[in-house]
């Protein structure tokens, strides 16, 4: 058994602040994502979740603060690729709409540097866990897929890199409840297989149910970090969304 307390966290942000022009998106954020954990970062839109996701994936160099992956500081690599072993399913999925399902998946493996043969092997594996409509016709252009199918494909594309940590930004956005359930089932399976999951969400329900730890962001600041259960969590959650004064 892995000793969770002594192993370095899979990902950690220390005092991360980020501004876009004059806009403060993250304001001294520190979070630790332990290896094998399922962590949810919740907050209303504009709270800074997507920025934090980009920073933790190594895709955005923060204005200040450091990011560590597996205990090692990640050099600021704003224009480089993602941190090895970390995959991001971005907000809005950002599939390549003109490319086929198969091509989208293939790029997930290719981008992570997998060999041609290895990519094809993973492709068969990932296709098998996708909805039937995708499995049956992997030649379809991604733009023609439904929202749920697109989200599943986006996760599949990230999984093609065989990440140790999966960051997923707003998977439930624009999805009907039954599809959201499918997405979360898959995330649970991945978590059970040992993948560390970091979830950025606006919708609290599912996130709370699945996570070991909950972080709440409000206007770029961490206002709560801890157990997703209990009164403190509940209060923080409500106030993070609606604002305390409103209740």
């Amino acid at each position: 058994m892995l000793d969770m307390t002594s192993a370095p966290p899979a990902l950690a942000a220390e005092g991360v602040t980020h501004r876009y022009g004059g806009v403060l998106a993250l304001d001294g954020v520190s979070v630790q994502i332990g290896t094998g954990q399922f962590v949810s970062v919740l907050g209303s839109n504009g709270a800074g979740k997507s920025t934090l996701a980009m920073v933790l994936a190594g895709l955005l160099a923060p204005s200040s603060g450091t990011v560590r992956a597996g205990g090692h500081a990640v050099a600021s690599r704003g224009h480089g690729g993602p941190i090895a072993g970390v995959s991001l399913v971005p907000e809005g999925r950002r599939l390549f709409g003109q490319l086929s399902v198969r091509e989208n998946l293939l790029l997930g493996g290719f981008g992570a540097g997998a060999s041609g043969r290895e990519t094809r092997r993973r492709l068969d594996e990932v296709l098998a866990s996708l909805p039937k409509a995708l499995r049956d016709d992997p030649g379809r252009a991604a733009a023609t897929l439904s929202g749920g199918e697109q989200q599943m494909l986006a996760i599949g594309r990230a999984i093609m890199a065989q990440p140790r940590t999966l960051i997923i930004d707003e998977p439930s956005m624009g999805l009907a409840p039954v599809l959201i359930n499918q997405v979360y089932e898959w995330l649970s399976r991945l978590h059970a297989d040992g993948v560390t999951i970091l979830l950025m969400e606006q919708m609290a329900t599912h996130a709370v149910r699945h996570s070991d730890m909950m972080v709440i962001l409000d206007r770029g600041r961490v206002v709560y970090a801890g157990s997703p259960q209990g009164d403190a969590a509940s209060a923080a959650l409500i106030s993070g969304y609606i604002g305390e004064e409103a209740l």
């Binding site: 994936a57 895709l59 224009h79 480089g80 690729g81 993602p82 991001l88 971005p90 950002r94 599939l95 390549f96 790029l107 997930g108 290719f110 981008g111 992570a112 540097g113 594309r157 890199a161």
Partner: peptide, 9 residues
């Protein structure tokens, strides 16, 4: 940007 997110050079 999405290409960069996947690690494509």
């Amino acid at each position: 940007l999405a290409a960069r997110m996947l690690g494509l050079n």
